[in-house]
Design a binder for these strands. Structure first.
Length: 429
RNA sequence: GGGGGCGUGGUCUAGUGGUUAGGACGCCGGCCUUUCAAGCCGGAGGACACGGGUUCGAUUCCCGUCGCCCCUACCA
């Protein structure tokens, strides 16, 4: 029997990183087994489900490059089908009316056992399960009923979802059995928690896929990172290409304990992916994102220090157009001796030939030697003069990319300012 | 309250009845006679939640306790 899995988000909000991970695991399983992934939108809560949220989820999956084979199906649209089964359950005595609502008859004794791939056998005593409602008094079907009917109708072989559904599973099995169907294989993934240990919610930083995208993360990095939230392959491998993930992922190795989303590690991993991109590709992604052309040379030298796409602008905007000074950077670097060192740097750069990173480096090192100062005493004023900040791509590369004319012009402007501020504060050194 | 799940350094994880408990992020320090969120090197940090067992020996098996989470809705 070929594997059929499903991703069944409820469109009551944006797709969270936890949902994204569930989608990824299902996708990996389907790809690995040559089976199918069904996208089913569980929108039977008409109060909270919105078309905008559905669109957002579809969009997020698209960005993550997690395609599906069938769907998206709307659970709400399958209501007539659910109704049929509810009537059948009623007719066969498996369910009964209670103040208009329909309740499933749950045996008083015994237990229902969930065979979970990740957690083993989990038993639920029937005494702890009430005759639960499967249809509202207006006739509309409820979650557990809809899920059970849909999973069976759609031929789902493996239900892979968050552990928050484990307690609902015996109810779904009870419905399935009353319908005369065999339950699928279940696998309940460990939940994702926020840094405070609580269930992940909007309050926990960049928790939605949209926010991750806006923050400048790469879909391939996000996939790699979330794959590792609840799963590990061996004792040291951290990076997996998507084909490797398809090949190596297995439910048996999924862990049981909840994980916490750590954006710091995602940043690190994203930086690694960013550095592997070829400059042209990165340039295209940046231009699409910033909606403006950016020079390839600037992309090339910024690449080695970026961790997110968003970092590009703060790191290299000065290469695209003049940037205002960061006052703190100015104060820190433009001390009493700075103007003299800047003047010497200007002089050396004026005659550097050709104006490339090597020549710039030689020129500036000569200034350092001649003055007998520390390298940073020369480099930092130059850096602040051209970029306005204490952080930038490599200084020699930055100067070379900026070009001689622009570099000299910016140093001149800095010199003017430095002289004004130095004479205004004669005591400063 | 009832039922269920989970518990390896701050975080993600590997692992086994006998290991110096491995890797990664983060953190700290050094190097790159330049900043740095990059790179390289080094370091601190865990007696594997706690208490009992079983065992020659338990992080690994059993029981209990505690903690956290989930379900217990005419939400999903």
């Amino acid at each position: 029997m070929t594997m059929r899995v499903r991703f069944a988000p409820s469109p009551t909000g944006a797709l969270h990183i936890g949902g994204a991970r569930t989608a990824l695991y299902n996708w990996l399983l389907a790809r690995h087994a040559g089976g199918s992934l069904v996208l089913r939108v569980e929108d039977t809560d008409r109060e909270r489900s919105t078309p905008e949220n559905v669109a957002q989820i579809v969009d997020a999956l698209g960005w993550l490059e997690l395609g599906w084979d069938e769907g998206p199906f709307s659970q709400a649209e399958r209501r007539p089908r659910h109704r049929e089964e509810i009537d059948r359950l009623l007719g066969e005595g498996h369910a009964y009316l209670d103040e208009g609502a329909v309740r499933l008859r749950v045996p008083d004794a015994g237990e229902t056992v969930v065979e979970d791939v990740i957690r083993g056998e989990v038993s639920f005593p029937h005494e702890a399960i009430d005759d639960f409602v499967i249809a509202r008094s207006d006739g509309s079907p409820l979650y557990n009923l809809a899920v059970a009917v849909d999973d069976r109708d759609m031929g789902i072989t493996h239900v892979v979802r968050g552990a928050d559904h484990l307690s609902n599973t015996p109810r779904q099995i009870l419905i399935l059995r009353a319908l005369g169907a065999e339950p699928p294989v279940y696998a309940h993934l460990p939940l994702l928690h926020g840094p405070d240990g609580k269930k992940l919610s909007k309050r926990h930083g960049a928790a939605s896929v949209q926010e991750l995208r806006e923050a400048g993360y790469l879909p391939e990095a996000v996939r790699n990172y979330i794959a590792l939230l609840g799963w590990g392959y061996d004792e040291s491998t951290e990076f997996f290409t998507t084909p490797e993930l398809v090949e190596r992922f297995s439910l048996e190795r999924v862990s049981k304990s909840p994980a916490v989303f750590d954006e710091k590690k995602l940043r690190w991993m994203n930086g690694h992916y960013l550095r592997q991109l070829d400059a042209g590709d990165l340039q295209q992604r940046l231009e699409r994102r910033l909606d403006r052309p950016v020079p390839e040379a600037a992309v090339r030298i910024a690449q080695e220090k970026m961790q997110t796409l968003d970092d590009f602008w703060s790191l290299a905007a000065f290469l695209v157009e003049p940037q205002p000074d960061d006052p703190a950077a100015w104060d820190k670097v433009m001390t009493a001796g700075a103007p003299e060192r800047l003047r010497r740097a200007r002089e050396a750069l004026a005659s550097a030939e050709p104006f490339d990173a090597d020549a710039v480096e030689q020129a500036l090192r000569r200034v350092v030697d001649d003055l007998g100062v520390k390298p940073r005493d020369v480099y930092q004023p130059v850096r602040v003069a051209i970029s306005g900040r204490t952080v930038s791509p490599g200084i020699f590369e930055s100067v070379a990319v900026l070009g001689r004319d622009e570099t000299l012009a910016r140093i001149d402007r800095a010199l003017e300012r430095a002289e004004i501020s130095t004479s205004a504060e004669p005591d400063m050194g």
